[in-house]
């Protein structure tokens, strides 16, 4: 089955294995993420989805396998060899976390400014020019605030820009974490359960936000999600994981009908699966 996402994938995961002692969290996993696609990684609890994310973003070093990221200009990054902050900065992979990790004691705007740390540090000449208030840094800071404002408008939080992030309601925190990732201007955005804990209305807004990001920013999104209404509605491509093994891979229509997936989710005995 040759499909669209296999032709020129932004991310190609090949034979990825992650072992923790005797536990095999991911077993020989291969999948591709299409450029400018929304790819969903689904599976029952404990299937190893977040471990995949941690391998992709350098928080874990995979035991085996290769994770290849190719930018539009052809430059290639082997993510399994890079440190987490290098992956974020140079390979331009952004991520969010299952249990939201905002800088709670900092304001919403500050959160978005921290995400633009690297270009700003550069503009401030590693704080030296900034210390003397040179104009180059001031311009860069103004631009950073503008970018932050752009994303605050997108997620409808401009009015709360100067409030501490920890004071926001849960749904807004989820959106803010996505906006913070987007302030890094990533090429691949990894979202770990972005719809968890959202009400149906917020969930719809999230769908729209993700589709907007895909269509306007022309970037790839990889998401882990349990909420099937989100997954089926917005994904271009779905990979299904169970016990660290990929059991299915295809379009939402294909996944919906796949007996392996149904078995994994509903707990049917192995023999009953054709």
């Amino acid at each position: 089955m040759t499909t669209l996402w296999e032709k020129n994938p932004i991310l190609r995961v090949s034979h990825l294995t992650m072992r923790f002692g005797g536990l095999v969290a991911i077993d020989n996993l291969s999948f591709d993420t299409g450029r400018n696609d929304i790819t969903a990684l689904i599976g029952p609890n404990g299937a190893g989805k977040t471990t995949v994310f941690n391998c992709l973003t350098g928080f874990y070093k995979p035991t085996e396998g290769m994770i290849q990221l190719t930018h539009d200009d052809g430059s290639e990054f082997l993510l399994e060899r890079l440190d987490d902050h290098v992956i974020a900065r140079r390979a331009r992979v952004a991520r969010t976390f299952q249990n939201i990790r905002l800088f709670g004691g900092m304001t919403v705007l500050e959160n978005l400014m921290v995400a633009q740390h690297n270009p700003l540090v550069h503009a401030s000449r590693f704080a030296i020019a900034g210390l003397f208030g040179l104009s180059g840094y001031r311009t860069a800071e103004r631009e950073a605030v503008e970018l932050a404002k752009h994303w605050l408008e997108k997620i409808d939080l401009v009015d709360r820009a100067d409030d501490p992030a920890a004071d926001l309601p849960y749904g807004a925190q989820r959106r803010l974490e996505i906006a913070r990732s987007m302030c890094m201007k990533p090429l691949l955005l990894c979202l770990d359960e972005p719809a968890a804990g959202l009400n149906p209305r917020e969930s719809d807004q999230l769908n729209q936000l993700l589709l907007d990001i895909r269509d306007e920013e022309k970037i790839a999104i990889l998401l882990i999600e349990h909420d099937m209404s989100v997954v089926m509605e917005i994904s271009d491509h779905i990979a299904v994981l169970d016990y660290g093994i990929k059991i299915s891979d295809g379009t939402p229509e294909f996944i919906r009908a796949d007996p392996h997936v149904i078995a994994a989710y509903l707990g049917v005995e192995d023999e009953e699966v054709a």
Binding site: F103, M113, V121
Partner: peptide, 26 residues
């Protein structure tokens, strides 16, 4: 002065959540 510069902001972000900092390329 440093507190208002990206470096100082990164210090405070580090105090708030180190893992999030790493995911943001710091």
């Amino acid at each position: 002065r440093l507190r208002r510069l990206p470096l100082g902001r990164a210090w405070e972000a580090l105090r708030e959540d180190e893992i999030a900092c790493r995911s943001l390329g710091i």
